[in-house]
C-alpha cells in the first residue's frame, strides 16, 4: 500500500490517541505515527530519517505543551515545509486566531468527527500557503 501523506500525531491522552489514529487510518493514503508526548515526538524525529508531512499535536500536554513543541519543531532543519496542525478541546471558534498567530497552519477542534478527521487534515495540508 502506498502512502501519500505522512502524519506524526502527538497526544498524551491514550484513548484519544487510539481513536484519532484509527480515524486517520480510515484513509488508506495516510501513514500515521502516534506518540504520547512532545519529547517522544522530538526523540522520534532525532532517531529516525522518517520525516512527516504533517504534525498533528494536542495543545494541553504535561511537560512540553503543544506551543513549546511547535516552537521546537519550527527551529529544526528539514521541517520548514511540514504542516503544523493543533488539536484542542480548549478553544471555541473565536480562539483560532491565537493558534494561527503562533504559526500553526490549522486547528482541529475536539471533539472531532472521526469519519471526517482524515479529510480535514488533508484539506489543511493541501491548502496553499505563503511560507
Amino acid at each position: 500500500m502506498t502512502h501519500d501523506l505522512r502524519i506524526l500525531y502527538v497526544d498524551d491522552d491514550d484513548d484519544i490517541r487510539i481513536v484519532a489514529t484509527m480515524a486517520l487510518q480510515l484513509d488508506p493514503g495516510l501513514e500515521v505515527r502516534a506518540v504520547s508526548s512532545g519529547q517522544a515526538a522530538l526523540a522520534a524525529l532525532d532517531q529516525d530519517a522518517w520525516r512527516p508531512d504533517v504534525i498533528l499535536m494536542d495543545v494541553m500536554m504535561p511537560g512540553m505543551n503543544g506551543f513549546a513543541l511547535h516552537d521546537a519543531l519550527r527551529s529544526r532543519e528539514g521541517l520548514g515545509q511540514t504542516t503544523r496542525i493543533f488539536m484542542t478541546a480548549r478553544a471555541s471558534r473565536s480562539g483560532f486566531e491565537e493558534y494561527v498567530a503562533n504559526g500553526a497552519h490549522g486547528v482541529i477542534l475536539k471533539p472531532f468527527d472521526p469519519l471526517k478527521l482524515a479529510s480535514e487534515v488533508r484539506a489543511i495540508a493541501n491548502r496553499p500557503r505563503l511560507d
Binding site: 491522552d13 484513548d15 481513536v19 471533539p111 472521526p114
Partner: peptide
C-alpha cells in the same frame, strides 16, 4: 472526544 470518536 474519545467517546464520540469511538462511537463514530
Amino acid at each position: 472526544t474519545s467517546v464520540v470518536g469511538s462511537l463514530g
